[in-house]
């Protein structure tokens, strides 16, 4: 079986050129908006995938998010966090989709079988850790999962996590804390050995 390429988290972005792209996009430069799409698509898609556990749904939501962002880019306030603004639109789309799924009584498909979240290069032990953690993350309540992945995967501050999710900074911090707490409880200690030195 051929394995599809996997996406990894991107490094933080340089701010100066992004501000120029945003200004140009607000003036109607579609090429400048394309550069923003190029910069943020994979990151948004990653987060939406963690939320939906369905790559088709995540891709559709990412596309819808960028189209909405394009329509609304003139309303973006210069000097504020574009990434948080964009993810906020993505979050709203996700919430709307969940609502409509609930209305039509359809469940979001879960296409996160254990083998999909492993890496070809990883050791068997690492693969097992990734599988167990991925499963535990997907079992978290959506509010906790979204806050946790924004903080851990995107590196957003609690303040920006709160902006994306439309809540307070304290609630964002609480959700990340609760998510970590739940994961620490359900993941067997032997999979997160206390001997491993990741501490900074």
């Amino acid at each position: 079986m051929t394995r599809e390429p996997e996406l990894s988290a991107s490094p933080p972005e340089p701010a100066g050129e992004e501000a120029e792209w945003i200004t140009a996009a607000q003036a109607g430069d579609r090429g400048a908006f394309a550069r923003l799409v190029d910069r943020y698509w994979d990151r948004l898609y990653r987060w939406l995938y963690h939320m939906t556990r369905d790559r088709h749904a995540a891709e559709d939501l990412a596309q819808e998010t960028f189209l909405r962002a394009l329509a609304a880019v003139k309303s973006f306030r210069a000097g504020t966090n574009f990434r948080a603004w964009l993810f906020r639109i993505g979050h709203n789309n996700f919430v709307n989709q969940k609502r409509s799924e609930r209305r039509t009584k359809h469940q979001l498909p879960d296409d996160t079988p254990a083998h999909d979240v492993t890496t070809a290069e990883g050791t068997a032990e690492n693969r097992e850790v990734l599988e167990v953690v991925a499963r535990a993350v997907s079992d978290l309540p959506p509010d906790f999962r979204s806050a946790l992945m924004l903080r851990v995967d995107e590196g957003l501050s609690f303040r920006d996590v709160a902006k994306v999710l439309g809540t307070t900074e304290e609630t964002a911090r609480w959700r990340v804390f609760k998510a970590r707490q739940k994961l620490m409880k359900v993941i067997p200690p032997e999979l997160l050995p206390a001997g491993a030195g990741d501490e900074g």
């Binding site: 891709e59 979240v117 990734l130 953690v133 501490e199």
Partner: peptide
Amino acid sequence: RRAAKLETVLAALPVPAAP
């Protein structure tokens, strides 16, 4: 150390490419 390890694993969770 376990919490630190969890954080590292979370950041490394792979995601399949968009289809």
